[in-house]
Design a protein around this nucleic acid. Structure first.
Lengths: 235, 235
DNA sequence: ACAATAGTGTCTCTCAGACAGTATCGT
DNA sequence: ACGATACTGTCTGAGAGACACTATTGT
């Protein structure tokens, strides 16, 4: 079958469609992901990326937003929720044919509830730890998490998504910390400062200062209107 | 419903899953796309991106490859077939809930059959023409084609995908023509030459020459092993 | 010789990276 | 005063773009 006209609507192959949400945040200078513990087979007791069925009258993005709010108890609409891939290998769910749309969300360090609205327990796990054992996650979630992190790393290069990891007001040093944590590199503070300030619309100075425990007070910024960084910041 | 354990496999929302293949090629220095004419409602007589149902035991990439071969009569495996997005808006197909996975393929100028294995007529249409009228394509295929072209444009910047538009052996001028056609810009011949030759593993000199209708003969190259271009070629 | 196409050399400007230097705080 | 952190200035080298120049063909 290769085109729509000649099909029987009652005989199409039965698929389930789900969204999986990779919620990334930075805590203790480590990139962390929200994982839930599965309470029933298959993969009972294993950690999994939160997700759920798309409702029959619901848009994919809407389903992703709904699931994110259900799982994290978020009380506002996430700014950065991006689709990064589709996973439909037959047998990836042993019970039936499931096609899953992968989304990645960037959140500031906020209180993530230990359990969502459903009975499952939710945890914040360092990405490095979650990926050490290739079979440590349920289903094909090891691949999905790997792809999500790579998507996030690339996104920081030419998009202004890094600010989504931070509260509304932040310092340049904190922004640099996001890059260093997500990329796993260290960046020159002086050069990063100039690059960010020169990049039109990336950050906006508030005029306020914040005093840290030591040293000169840092100027406070908020996210600017720009969505891309040109030229990009290189890893 | 937010997690898999507590669902009834016989009561999941019934979705159909399809793949849509945006086949891009360059003919007459214009970026062209393979479109088929729909023979039945809805959108009877309108042009549409070729696609079809994913079989119940078939991988998404396999389904895309199969559809591509069915639609174009290709007798080899395409090197560049990339997933670029998922389209699942309720109502995008008026008959039922269809989630479609978008793939884009790059082909050299080869004889595209005017009709595939099914009864539908197939055409090669300039992308600019196909996108002039926002309602000119069936379903949401205007959006899908727009996204596919943007994916292709970005792909040329930092990946070596441009060679997929050319035969196995080609000149640097022909490669530059791919960039100019896909990007809709004009590039400096001298600078492009140096950039491509200096880019490790992008192209490999064959030592052969090809004489055009006029001028100095051009050296012939074939695609190299590199998959990325670093630093990228900027638009 | 001349036009046309292929390819090289040269100059300039931008920008990333290295790193020294200055500013402003707490102790 | 001193250390720590924030920020600025300066130098250098890589690379993109503009463009002149050379190379090799057909007419």
């Amino acid at each position: 079958m290769s085109e729509l006209p000649d099909y029987d609507p009652s005989a199409f192959p039965p698929f389930a469609v789900t969204v999986d949400i990779v919620v990334l945040t930075i805590v203790d200078d480590r990139l962390q992901v929200v994982l839930i513990e599965r309470g029933a087979p298959p993969f009972q007791g294993a950690l999994a990326i939160p997700g759920g069925f798309v409702r029959i009258d619901e848009d994919l993005d809407t389903a992703a937003t709904r699931e994110l709010i259900e799982e994290t108890g978020l009380d506002y609409l996430p700014q950065h929720l991006e689709q990064f891939g589709v996973y439909g290998q037959p047998g990836r769910d042993p019970r039936m044919r499931v096609v899953s749309v992968g989304y990645v969300a960037f959140l500031p360090e906020i209180p993530i509830p230990e359990a969502g609205t459903d009975a499952a327990d939710a945890y914040l796990v360092a990405v490095d730890d979650a990926l050490t054992d290739p079979g440590g996650l349920a289903f094909d979630h090891h691949v999905i998490l790997t792809d999500a992190v790579e998507h996030a790393r690339r996104s920081l290069e030419s998009a202004t998504t890094a600010t989504a990891f931070l509260p509304p007001v932040f310092t340049v040093t904190e922004l640099r910390g996001v890059y260093e944590t997500v990329w796993g590199t260290s960046l020159d503070p002086g050069n990063f400062q100039k690059k960010v300030i020169d990049s039109e619309g990336f950050v906006i100075a508030t005029g306020e200062l914040r005093q840290g425990p030591r040293g000169r007070p840092a100027e406070l910024y908020r996210a600017g209107p720009a969505e891309t960084i040109d030229p990009p910041i290189r890893r």
